[in-house]
Write a protein that binds this DNA or RNA. Sequence first.
DNA 1: CAATCATGGACATTCCATATCCTAGATTGG
DNA 2: CCAATCTAGGATATGGAATGTCCATGATTG
Lengths: 162, 162
Amino acid sequence: MKFRNQVEWALHCCSLMSSLPEGRYLSTRSLSEFHGVPKEYLGKALQGLSKAGLVLTTLGPSGGYRLAREVGQITFLDIVEAVEGRKSTFQCSEIRANNPCRPANACDDRPCAVARIMWRADEAWRRSLAEVTLADLQDMLAEDLAPDMLKRSFDWLLERAG
Amino acid sequence: MKFRNQVEWALHCCSLMSSLPEGRYLSTRSLSEFHGVPKEYLGKALQGLSKAGLVLTTLGPSGGYRLAREVGQITFLDIVEAVEGRKSTFQCSEIRANNPCRPANACDDRPCAVARIMWRADEAWRRSLAEVTLADLQDMLAEDLAPDMLKRSFDWLLERAG
DNA sequence: CAATCATGGACATTCCATATCCTAGATTGG
DNA sequence: CCAATCTAGGATATGGAATGTCCATGATTG
């Protein structure tokens, strides 16, 4: 019951790309150096973001990734699902069908009650993540971090952005 | 990002034990037969419930498990956490410390903003599961299932209960 | 006293997260 | 045009966790 590391990486990469000026791109190499994570493996996560349409890419030198939408239009749920998929935390294996008292021709018009309850909790979880955008994260970071550190990070980013 | 099978098994076992008359017990063997799951492995999940204080046990022939509290006093969250543990879905690896622009003496007074958002979603998930008890599940099943099947399952249970 | 039970440790197996490496094709800067 | 750099993505290792089996122990019951 744990997320991939890639989810954390993808979220932090999106956070960094949130400060990227219009039309510029950040390469996998730069993103991996900034966060201290393996470049090749991070690439898989970024490809997930790309396939989900959350980021745009260009090839060649000075290529890389940038956000495909405004920071206010990308939610945490978008990013998590792009990397982790849309599977529910609870997978119903239809245990109820094994009940020895169940007639062979029994048909279930509704999903198993246990699954319904677990899936409702999943929905609450998704709703919570869908309420937070990258813009909200930017606001939180502006409160958390010292202004000069934000400035230095931004300069670092400008140096690398193609 | 998926639960153990044991979580599903434990929930269904608790559901069955909800109909158990006062003072009677159900063995691992019976529970595994009813649900069609491996006895030895199911035993591990039931031991989890036992260690969490959700069920009582007795040894010897006619021994087994029964709920330790009223059905209205055992929540889905209780059961899930007894089997799965209390780990969060999101594990913060403090990626922010790898930021090359970060001064060596920097200290963080708050958890990483990304983690705070993810943990808030976990809380919403837990709250949802904490709102549902085994009594609620019984009500749902009474609506879902044909009365004669509930009756047959109950008789099956009485035959096995020690 | 023999059968049955929970507990728990040891062990095998299968699957997945976590990588690493390489090739192909596209693009850019010189 | 050419060399360098980029993304995309396939092939392959590896470690650890999920899944499942087996057995020993001690308690309880009939």
